[in-house]
């Protein structure tokens, strides 16, 4: 892996340059869509949930957490098929293609959260000290998204309708996460299943750490770490099995 660091760096840079059209304003444009969504969600749903503490801040944090997963997996999906010549014409370890896409997403996401910090500061009047957990948390989340990306990218080579299926699933996921509504409206008998969703679990920790100023529970941390490790190993295993015939199928 280490000998390919130069290649990983270059591919990540290319990914970012293409995404932001090689301009420094490009990143700001990419903020437009989440900002609009946040605005709409807030103005529509504040009449219902507006009494919840820190409702707006929680929407923003929730949406950014969701975006890291949705944008990350949706773009990883195309990371193999989108670069056919790097698969069929030259040998490089193919998980590098998924990794560089995932890293580009990590950087985008870090920038988004950087924009978020002053908003949290304005809304709360202070920054909770537990924000210090954020880098660790994002690191764990990254491995989860990368693992999921490996599975999707490999499967998409063989099943070309997976992108449409995944788009629908992401839509379902959006409403299965406590983004618009607070966790408290989920009925008790559903709660144990509801919390099996790793993205929800991540969302709860992010909000604890970044807004509520508490360290969240050990159970939550243990859960997401286990899920991230599992996603990475299962993803690598599936990817390695499937990548042997990539060059024939692409």
């Amino acid at each position: 892996m280490w000998q390919y660091r130069e290649l990983i760096k270059n591919l990540t840079t290319v990914e970012l340059k293409n995404r932001y059209q090689n301009t420094s304003l490009g990143f700001l444009w990419s903020l437009l869509s989440p900002l609009l969504l946040i605005g709409v969600l807030y103005f529509v749903f504040r009449h219902i949930f507006g009494n919840e503490p820190n409702y707006l801040t929680n929407i923003i944090v929730g949406l950014l957490v969701f975006r890291f997963f949705s944008v990350g997996t949706a773009s990883s999906l195309y990371s193999i098929t989108g670069k056919p010549s790097l698969v069929t014409k030259v040998y490089i370890p193919r998980h590098i293609l998924v990794l560089s896409t995932a890293l580009a997403n990590l950087i985008s996401s870090l920038l988004e959260f950087l924009v978020l910090l002053p908003i949290v500061f304005l809304a709360l009047g202070h920054l909770p000290f537990t924000v210090a957990f954020y880098p660790l948390l994002h690191f764990i989340y990254f491995w989860f998204v990368f693992g999921a990306g490996l599975i999707l990218a490999a499967c998409y080579v063989y099943f070309r309708d997976l992108n449409q299926i995944w788009e629908v699933l992401l839509n379902v996921l959006f409403f299965c996460c406590p983004i618009i509504y607070p966790l408290s409206i989920v009925p008790d008998y559903l709660m144990r299943y509801y919390m099996l969703n790793p993205v929800t679990r991540f969302m709860v920790i992010y909000r604890d750490v970044m807004v509520a100023g508490q360290i969240s529970s050990v159970t939550n941390f243990a859960f997401v770490i286990a899920v991230a490790i599992a996603a990475y190993f299962v993803g690598s295993f599936i990817f390695n099995r499937m990548q042997r015939r990539f060059a024939e199928e692409i």
Partner: peptide, 28 residues
């Protein structure tokens, strides 16, 4: 392997940038 020349070339980037990318694909 030179099964095809210019694997990974990016039309939107400059020649110099592309040389660095292509060279890293070739393991430099």
């Amino acid at each position: 392997s030179f099964l095809e020349l210019g694997v990974g070339f990016q039309p939107e980037l400059t020649a110099r940038e592309n040389v660095y990318i292509y060279a890293s694909i070739l393991g430099m």
